[in-house]
Amino acid sequence: MAFLEINRLEKSYGAMSVLKGINLAMEEGGFLVLVGPSGCGKSTLLNTIAGLESISSGEIKIAGRRVNDRRPSERDIAMVFQSYALYPNMTVAQNIAFGLEMRKVPKPERDKAVAEVAETLQIGHLLNRKPSQLSGGQRQRVAMGRALVRKPKLFLFDEPLSNLDAKLRVDMRTEIKRLHNSLGTTIVYVTHDQIEAMTLATKIAVLKDGHLQQFGTPAEIYNDPVNTFVADFMGSPPMNLVPGELVMSGKAYAVAIERDGTAPVVLPIANDRTVVSPAGQKVVLGIRPEAITDVDGADRNAKNVIRVSCRTEVVEPAGSDTFVVTRLGGKDVVARMRSDAAVKLHSTTDFAYNMDRAVLFDPASGNRVA
Rank of each mutant, 00 (worst) to 15 (best):
Ala113Asn: 12
Met79Leu: 12
Glu101Leu: 11
Leu126His: 01
Glu101Ser: 13
Leu148Glu: 05
Ala85His: 03
Ser132Asp: 10
Ser135Asn: 01
Arg129Gly: 05
Gln82Ser: 00
Glu119Lys: 15
Leu100Ser: 05
Asp111Pro: 11
Met102Cys: 14
Pro160Phe: 02
Ala78Pro: 13
Pro88Val: 01
Arg146Ala: 03
Leu86Tyr: 00
Ser162Leu: 07
Asp111Val: 09
Lys107Gly: 15
Ala115Tyr: 14
Val142Pro: 05
Thr91Cys: 05
Glu109Gly: 08
Ala78Cys: 12
Gln140Gly: 02
Met90Lys: 08
Pro160Val: 01
Leu134Arg: 01
Lys151Trp: 02
Val105Lys: 13
Glu109Asp: 13
Arg141Tyr: 06
Ala115Val: 14
Gln138Ala: 08
Pro106Leu: 03
Val92Gly: 00
Pro131Lys: 08
Gly145Val: 11
Glu109Arg: 09
Ala85Val: 04
Val105Thr: 14
Thr91Phe: 04
Lys112Trp: 07
Arg129Val: 06
Lys151Met: 02
Ala97Val: 08
Ala85Thr: 07
Val80Glu: 08
His125Lys: 14
Gly136Asn: 03
Gln138Ile: 05
Phe155Lys: 09
Pro106Asp: 09
Met102His: 09
Ala115Lys: 15
Gln140Leu: 01
Tyr87Gln: 01
Gln94Lys: 09
Leu156Val: 10
Leu126Ser: 03
Ala147Pro: 10
Arg110Asp: 11
Arg141Glu: 08
Lys153Leu: 10
Ile123Pro: 15
Pro88Thr: 00
Pro152Lys: 09
Tyr87Lys: 00
Ala118Asp: 01
Tyr87Ile: 00
Lys104Glu: 14
Gly136Cys: 03
Leu121Lys: 05
Leu86Cys: 00
Val80Thr: 07
Ala113Lys: 15
Gly145Arg: 09
Gln140Phe: 01
Leu100Lys: 04
Asn95Met: 02
Arg146Met: 02
Asn89Ala: 04
Val105Asp: 13
Leu127Val: 14
Lys130Ser: 12
Leu126Asp: 02
Pro108Thr: 07
Pro131Leu: 07
Arg103Gly: 11
Leu100Val: 04
Glu101Phe: 13
Gln82Asn: 00
Leu127Cys: 15
Leu154Gly: 07
Gln138Lys: 04
Thr120Cys: 14
Ala97Met: 10
Ser132Asn: 11
Ala97Ser: 14
Met90Asn: 04
Pro106Met: 06
Phe81Cys: 09
Thr91Arg: 08
Ala93Val: 06
Ser135Gln: 02
Arg129Ile: 07
Leu161Glu: 03
Arg110Gly: 13
Gln94Tyr: 06
Pro131Ala: 09
Leu127Phe: 14
Val117Asn: 02
Pro88Ser: 00
Leu148Val: 05
Ala97Gly: 13
Arg103Met: 12
Gly137Glu: 04
Leu127Trp: 15
Arg110Tyr: 12
Arg103Asn: 13
Lys153Glu: 09
Ala118Thr: 00
Tyr84Ser: 06
Glu109Met: 09
Leu161Asp: 04
Pro108Phe: 02
Gly124Phe: 14
Gly145Asn: 11
Gly99Met: 08
Val114Phe: 15
Gly137Asn: 10
Met79Glu: 08
Ala147Thr: 11
Phe155Arg: 10
Gly99Val: 09
Gly136Thr: 03
Asn95Ile: 02
Gly124Lys: 15
Arg103Thr: 12
Arg139Ile: 04
Thr91Asn: 07
Arg103His: 12
Thr120Pro: 14
